[in-house]
Computed example of a mutant assay.
Amino acid sequence: MKLFLIVALFIYCVNGDEYISDGLQPLTDEIVNAINALNTTWKAGKSFGGSSSVEIDTLVPTQEKYSAKADFPMRKYGSFRLPVNFDSSRVWLNCTSIGKIYDQTKGYPSWIYTAVGTIADRLCIRHGIQIDVEATVKKMAEWNVGSNSYNNSANIGQAFQYWSKNGIFAVELTKESSCLPFSQKCQPNEIKITKYFKLKNECIDNETELMKSITLFGSVSAYMEVYSDFLNYRSGVYKRSSKNYLGVQNMKIIGWGTEKGVDYWLAAGSWGTQWGEEGFFRIQRQPQQFGAVPNPIATEFLPVNDVKDIHSYVHGQLFYLAK
């Protein structure tokens, strides 16, 4: 009886939904027990071995830092039948970047893994080009993404705006770079350009169109508000049970499904494989679960075969081919 009363103190109801107490700290036994006591659609655990400082520090604390201009057109796809369950990493097995989990606790922000990873997935699916995401992220980070940089944000929209204006290059690394800033003038013989692409970005404003985009082209980049309970996610279909807002995170949505009557999105995080379902998570397929954030962003590529007139580029445009 005493145990029941203690657990009950952690929980209260608002508008028919159950929430844990605001005072519970992430990745503690207390918050894990409170979440699991709700007997909801997912299970909590201490995914990061009890340390929460690094993970919380990787979140962007205010909406001001990630609000993007709504200048991407909305995309409407044609009508076709959608499956009940879809996992793009299983559909396109040769595109290994789709099912790869990266670890932003190395010091790189979530937007760079999400944006680079989404482009890598879609380049592979539509054009058969395999990108080394880790190498690309590392080079971009050395160029213009320090831990205190303006670019250390959750603003995938800002990244896609830049690439839609300047384009991207698929390149082969011929030797290690030792010169920054990186440019043709600085190191003309260290890379070999294989392809140049122009980008077309679009926002997606409903779940049916999002499913269609993933079915046709692969992963989609998305924003998500993070609350204290989410850090403790271990398995199942996540449904928010906390009001303690921590910040914003970017992730790739790679599919969807239904479990025990609950519809969900399948997403790839960037906190390593020790978190969640080996780095992946499933979140209830309802708009409010992502919070008050911009719409997911999809991108398509227009290959430009004649690259002889390309005279300048920066490291933020270079996507390194997998060896």
Score class of each variant (00 low, 15 high):
Val14Cys: 10
Phe4Thr: 08
Ser221Ile: 08
Asp205Trp: 05
Glu300Ala: 05
Val14His: 14
Lys100Thr: 03
Ser177Leu: 11
Asp71Phe: 04
Ala44Thr: 05
Ile112Met: 09
Gly49Met: 07
Ala34Tyr: 06
Ile131Pro: 02
Tyr12Thr: 14
Thr136Lys: 00
Gly16Glu: 04
Asp22Lys: 13
Thr58His: 06
Gly291Gln: 02
Thr62Gln: 13
Asp87Val: 03
Cys95Pro: 06
Asp229His: 00
Met1Ile: 14
Lys69Asp: 10
Arg282Thr: 06
Val314Asp: 14
Glu259Tyr: 11
Phe160Val: 04
Ser235Gly: 11
Ser47Trp: 02
Gln25Cys: 01
Asn201Thr: 11
Lys106Tyr: 00
Ile101Trp: 08
Glu18Gln: 10
Ala120Thr: 01
Gly291Asn: 04
Trp111Thr: 01
Ile119Ala: 13
Trp42Asn: 00
Gly247Tyr: 07
Gly117Cys: 10
Ser53Pro: 00
Lys69Gln: 13
Phe72Ile: 04
Tyr223Phe: 12
Leu302Met: 12
Ala44Gln: 06
Val60Arg: 10
Ala70Arg: 15
Leu3Ile: 15
Asp87Ser: 06
Thr96His: 03
Ser88Glu: 13
Phe72Arg: 06
His311Phe: 14
Ile193Ser: 00
Val220Phe: 09
Ser53Met: 10
Ser53Asn: 12
Val262Cys: 09
Gly269Ala: 13
Pro287Asn: 07
Phe4Val: 10
Leu123Glu: 08
Tyr233Gln: 03
Cys124Arg: 09
Ile35Met: 09
Gly107Arg: 02
Ser79Met: 09
Ala115Glu: 05
Ser221Gln: 12
Gly257Tyr: 11
Ile98Trp: 09
Thr105Pro: 02
Ser47His: 01
Pro83Thr: 04
Ile204Val: 15
Gln284Asp: 06
Lys308Glu: 04
Lys43Ser: 10
Asp22Leu: 13
Thr62Met: 11
Gln104Glu: 04
Tyr264Trp: 11
Asn15Ser: 14
Asp29Lys: 03
Gln63Trp: 04
Phe281Gln: 01
Asn39Thr: 06
Ile101Lys: 05
Ser228Asp: 13
Ser241Gly: 00
Gly255Leu: 03
Asn85Leu: 01
Tyr196Thr: 04
Phe290Leu: 15
Val145Arg: 00
Gln249Pro: 00
Thr114Pro: 01
Phe10Asn: 05
Ser270Thr: 10
Lys323Tyr: 09
Tyr162Cys: 02
Ile6Thr: 14
Thr299Trp: 02
Ala37Leu: 07
Ala298Tyr: 02
Ile98Phe: 11
Ile131Asp: 02
Val84Glu: 15
Phe169Gly: 03
Ser47Arg: 08
Asn295Phe: 13
Asn85Thr: 02
Cys186Pro: 04
Gln284Thr: 07
Gln187Tyr: 05
Leu173Ser: 11
Glu277Tyr: 08
Thr273Lys: 14
Asn144Arg: 09
Lys76Gly: 06
Val14Ala: 08
Glu190Pro: 00
Lys65Ser: 05
Gly236Gln: 08
